[in-house]
Amino acid sequence: MAGSIPESAFADRAAALAGAAAVSDRRWDALRRAARARLAPFGAAVLIAALAVALAAPVLAPYDPYAQDLGSALQAPGRAHLLGTDNVGRDVLSRVIWGTRVSLVAGFVSVAIAALAGSLLGIAAGYSGGRVDGLVMRVMDAVLSFPPLVLALALGAVLGAGLTGVLIALGVVYTPTFARLMRGQVLTVKARDYVEAARALGAPAWRIAWQHVLPNAAAPIVVQASLSVAFAILAEASLSFLGLGIQPPGASWGSMINAGRGYLQQAPWIVFGPGAALFVTVVGLNFVGDAIRDGLDPRLRG
């Protein structure tokens, strides 16, 4: 008996090593596929640049984004002001740079809120089944019964103007997608033999959820999250364009575009600067999302 223990331990380790090799191979393949996607490098560059700009905003911005200078209001782009100035003489470039922070925070934080809340709800629903499942999923259906922007607008209005309100509103709007996804994954994984084996061995529910369900469900959640960030950034811009979100004089791309809309004739650059930043960021993040999806979930490619 004593001799058989190390033997089986060795066999276990060999199996584990083989498994690990297979996993790392798969990861490597996934990475390679992602890199091969033609547009992924552009997307990655945009994402890295946006992150850098957001982090280094105080260093990069040539002017104080709030400093008004009525003497140089509505100046066309030129050497002094690369992207021109707005109606109260603030430097558009500096405001675009500071606005990057707001957009990225909005995109990543709201999706993080949604992914976390949605995953927890999805696990609870899929794992408990029965009434809990029914209730959670009907609530998710109810949230999905509102057009996303309308719901975000109403929630944002109720929670009060400001970035926090918008983050929570967008988090709520995107939660059902993650909850549905996670619940589906849980139901699939729950039916697998290894989960049954774990349960037969007496593993508590939380450990099964943590060790078996979560790792298997992670990939689709990551894919969904990466595809959602671009849309969350668009949604934040739309809400702040309508007047929710960061309040003046704070700079967000959406609110800058709204403020510049009255000056389209004299000073279109007030709109075009933040507009171009928003468009390029969203396109870039879309490419990154697509690449991550192609890498992690080849079935969805196309």
Binding site: A230, L234, A237, S238, F241, G254, I257, N258, R261, L264, Q265, P268, V271, G275, L278, F279, V282, V283, N286
Partner: peptide, 22 residues
């Protein structure tokens, strides 16, 4: 298709206003 999906509605509106209106 990609352009249309990534283009924020309000930005497109302002571009059209700038081009065809202003």
């Amino acid at each position: 298709a990609l352009f249309g999906i990534c283009m924020p509605n309000f930005l497109l509106a302002l571009l059209l206003i700038f081009l065809f209106g202003v």
